[in-house]
Design a protein around this nucleic acid. Sequence first.
DNA 1: ATTAGCACTCGGAAGTCGAGAGTGCCAGCA
DNA 2: TGCTGGCACTCTCGACTTCCGAGTGCTAAT
Lengths: 364, 364
Amino acid sequence: MELSDRKKKILAAVVEEYIRTAEPVGSKAIAQSGCLHCSSATIRNELAELAALGFLEQPHTSAGRIPTPLGYRMYVNELMQKQKLSLEETEEINRRLSQKLQELDDTLSGVGRLASQLTDYPALAVTAQSAVTVRRFDLIYVDANTFIIVLTLSSSTARSKLVRLPVSVDQELVQRLSSLFNASFTGITEEVVTPELLHDTERAADDRLGLTAVISSFLLSELREANTPTAFITGENRLLSQPEFRDPDKAHRLMSYLAGGGHILPPGESMGAGSDEVRVLIGPENVAEELKDSSVVIASYDAGDHTRGLIGVVGPTRMDYSAVAAKLSFLAAGLSRRLGGGEAPPEGMHNKLIIKGDNGNGRE
Amino acid sequence: MELSDRKKKILAAVVEEYIRTAEPVGSKAIAQSGCLHCSSATIRNELAELAALGFLEQPHTSAGRIPTPLGYRMYVNELMQKQKLSLEETEEINRRLSQKLQELDDTLSGVGRLASQLTDYPALAVTAQSAVTVRRFDLIYVDANTFIIVLTLSSSTARSKLVRLPVSVDQELVQRLSSLFNASFTGITEEVVTPELLHDTERAADDRLGLTAVISSFLLSELREANTPTAFITGENRLLSQPEFRDPDKAHRLMSYLAGGGHILPPGESMGAGSDEVRVLIGPENVAEELKDSSVVIASYDAGDHTRGLIGVVGPTRMDYSAVAAKLSFLAAGLSRRLGGGEAPPEGMHNKLIIKGDNGNGRE
DNA sequence: ATTAGCACTCGGAAGTCGAGAGTGCCAGCA
DNA sequence: TGCTGGCACTCTCGACTTCCGAGTGCTAAT
């Protein structure tokens, strides 16, 4: 079923006006807005039909119309004109992206924060890695009581930990453990690390100090962490400036859900390859009960080494889809460019190339 | 000026009742609560006097009394009986603390999250490190295009980064750079790293690939990060369940302030040595305008190597000071025990001893 | 010094009312 | 046939009023 041209225009007008004002939109307002050349009565008839078709609804008789989720969907799919970011905006984003990646190096949470600032909605950032393995294993001997574990993961991330011991070790032991772990634990996924393997290693190391336990516990936890999709939420407070969340209970419910690491993505969906595609989930399209009257916009980016990351924002269904989609898409593209693959550096700067796991502290 | 014994009891009763119910407390309620053996009229007289002394106030004539900040202060200083945590509670905290430190190893944000969960208030965690220097510098050659930088900081933290290059390097160059940086950059604070020093190093390295720039930029940013007090806020959403933040604007103001990295501590105060002392800042005692009608409870802990960390919660002035103080104090003590100094392991487990900088991702 | 009693105050809930925005529908017009 | 102006109707929202009750302050009695 295809809508008439005028209906489309009217629907778009309603959606945009409602996004702007958060108030039900009346026929008169549309008529006056000018782009349509007909009277309010005509608009009223059209509105009634659009309502009958399920694109609009009235909070009560004799109030203006507001879009239904279906209406938003139609808007997002067909009516919305892709917003182009202004030159200043793109430059601003690029600048801050470079800064974020360069200075703090906390990709995940930092980028989430950036997305939240740009869109003025709460943002979430997720890594969706899988089957990360240890690629390389190093122990650095510091002094008799101290050594450093350096783990190089297949996701091109280095993780390190300084270990201080209550007992003395000699350089030779550290060396031996290092090659032992390199031999046994590289290239295998988390599931393969069985207690038996650990036990064997411990015996092979002839380790009377319990060092293997320390090392393998670090190894395991890092492996587990790298394989677990972790999500950051930032800018929850921005929810409160949305009129639909003036009800503290409602806001609280959603924020708690988000803070609890709510699962956003539809199950099974893992954001296929479609590089910088932006997905929009409107109201009831969300799986989580808590999100049924909110919307989520998600973009995916190439984090390098066959890993894709997710970045998105959460807001009321009355969301500025056009602007948000544009910004997220640009952000994701920028991230892909900076993180993705081992290709040529984007701007000739070496340190733009650096790939590293995040350590998400710091503030904005 | 000393209050009569009965006044103290009445004041304590008002504070505790108000903390419990968030409603103004009337004379009758106190009389009925039993512990005092006198009539409501007597209580009324006493209440009037307490109000005259500035410990209580009435929202309006003919409503019950609520404590003023001064009243809370009196309660915290003299009346509040130090709450002992139950055995279950201490065990619960210990268990989760171990788990946090062991598995995720994200001390800062993880502990903040724990504090927030325990107290049901938003929590903040701050490191207040100073004059961190690089203690040791390692480069690990991985392959022709890849090497790892490992920085050992004086705060007994190892930081690492995997660098991938668009050009080839040989093992010898990496080796040379490593010893060069070890010679020039260890033991010095951030301020001493001048552009000249960097330039000299670059020249000395005979580096035509720009590697020194990559390395020194990482070095600088890590040094800067380690020396900058960073704060995490977690559990902001819990603010919304407090009746005093039912007004979304008020909640929004405070949450934005917190999210913006609001400075909590009174200026000049850097939490002296007093190990596990808990500080309470009530309403107007806070320096920040945004906190003037909220309260903050902070505990400090020994993070090892002459570094102290801070952990605290934020809430309405009507805060359960007793419980919060007890929990934070216990938490701080536990942290000190686990992180502090290089002393004997708390429970004979090696991996409890491990000291490492946080990488604050993960969820609860 | 404490208590019982009483008049008084004031905020908040519930109820009332009018204004205004917006609709649906009808009749006239191109 | 489709558009438009007009008109009666509906329903929400804010302002205003009323009323109830909790809690006080004061006074007189114990």
